[in-house]
Every structure is written in structure tokens, then in C-alpha cells.
Measured scan of single mutants.
Amino acid sequence: YKIYPYDSLIVTNSISVKLPKDVDRTRLERHLSPEEFQEVFGMSIEEFDRLALWKRNDLKKKALLF
């Protein structure tokens, strides 16, 4: 996945969300650098992957990456 800054990946309720063209809309968190991922989620990507799907989705919603 290509890395993008968190600010360019957050999704708000506005209709005209302009995400970069090559971003996987269903896995926005994968486009964060490991350092920024840790900062946003408070855990590593590996720890995040071990969580239940509902928990990952809940965290993504709170981080505006859903």
C-alpha cells in the first residue's frame, strides 16, 4: 500500500470526500506509515490485525478512517 499522511485519509460525513485515487477505500488504515499508525491507533499494525473485526471497525470509525 502507498503511504499517505493521516490528514489526507480521514473521512468526514461530507459527500465530497477527495481521497487519493489509488487508496483502498476499505482499508484506509493500511496507507498510514507505521509511526503514524501507532500514533492514531495506539498500537502496531500487527496488534491491530489480531483484534476482532468489530473492534477494528470501531477503532477505524473513531479515527475517521471508516
Results as ranks from 00 to 15, higher is better:
Asp22Thr: 04
Ile3Pro: 06
Leu64Met: 12
Pro5Trp: 03
Val11Ile: 14
Met43Glu: 01
Glu36Phe: 03
Glu35Asn: 11
Ile10Ser: 04
Thr26Val: 07
Ala52Lys: 09
Val17Asp: 15
Asp58Trp: 10
Asp49Ser: 08
Pro34Gln: 14
Pro34Cys: 10
Lys60Asn: 01
Ser14Thr: 12
Thr12Lys: 10
Leu64Asp: 09
Asn57Glu: 10
Leu53Tyr: 09
Leu32Val: 03
Leu19Ala: 06
Pro34Lys: 15
Ile45Pro: 07
Ser33Cys: 08
Ser8Thr: 14
Glu39Gly: 11
Asp49Gln: 07
Glu35Gln: 13
Val17His: 15
Thr26Ser: 13
Arg30Gln: 06
Pro5Cys: 04
Arg50Asp: 11
Pro5Ser: 08
Asp58Glu: 15
Ala63Ile: 03
Val23Phe: 03
Tyr4Gln: 02
Leu28Ala: 03
Leu59Trp: 03
Leu9Tyr: 00
Val40Lys: 05
Ser44Val: 13
Glu47Cys: 09
Lys55Pro: 03
Arg30His: 04
Ile45Gln: 08
Val23Tyr: 02
Gln38Val: 12
Arg50Gln: 14
Leu53Lys: 09
Phe48Thr: 00
Lys2Thr: 13
Gly42Ala: 11
Phe41Pro: 00
Phe41Thr: 00
Lys2Arg: 08
Pro5Met: 04
Pro20His: 04
Tyr1Ala: 08
Asp24Pro: 01
Tyr4Phe: 07
Lys55Ala: 10
Ser8Lys: 13
Thr12Trp: 15
Asp7Cys: 15
Asp24Arg: 04
Lys60Ala: 02
Ala52Tyr: 07
Ser8Arg: 14
Leu65Thr: 00
His31Val: 01
Val40Gln: 06
Gly42Phe: 09
Tyr4Val: 04
His31Ile: 01
Trp54Gln: 11
Tyr6Gln: 02
Pro34Glu: 13
Tyr4Glu: 02
Lys21Glu: 15
Arg56Gln: 14
Asn13Tyr: 06
Glu39Asn: 13
Arg50Pro: 03
Ile45Arg: 10
Leu64Glu: 07
Val11Tyr: 08
Ser33Lys: 05
Asp58Ile: 12
Arg25Thr: 10
Lys18His: 15
His31Ala: 02
Glu35Met: 11
Ile15Trp: 06
Tyr4Trp: 06
Ser44Glu: 11
Met43Lys: 03
Ser14Arg: 08
Ser44Asn: 15
Ile15Asn: 15
Gln38Trp: 14
Glu47Pro: 03
Leu32Ala: 00
Thr26Pro: 03
Pro20Trp: 04
Phe37Arg: 00
Gln38Asp: 11
Gln38Thr: 11
Gly42Leu: 11
Tyr6Cys: 02
Glu35Asp: 12
Thr12Asp: 11
Gln38Asn: 13
Leu19Gly: 06
Pro34Thr: 14
Ile45Cys: 07
Pro34Phe: 10
Asp22Gln: 04
Asp24Tyr: 06
Ser16Gly: 13
Asp49Ile: 05
Phe37Cys: 03
Phe48Tyr: 06
Ser33Ile: 05
Tyr1Asn: 08
Gly42Asn: 14
Trp54His: 12
Lys21Asp: 15
Ser16His: 12
Lys55Val: 13
Ala52Asn: 10
Leu64Lys: 14
Leu28Lys: 03
Phe66Ile: 08
Asn13His: 12
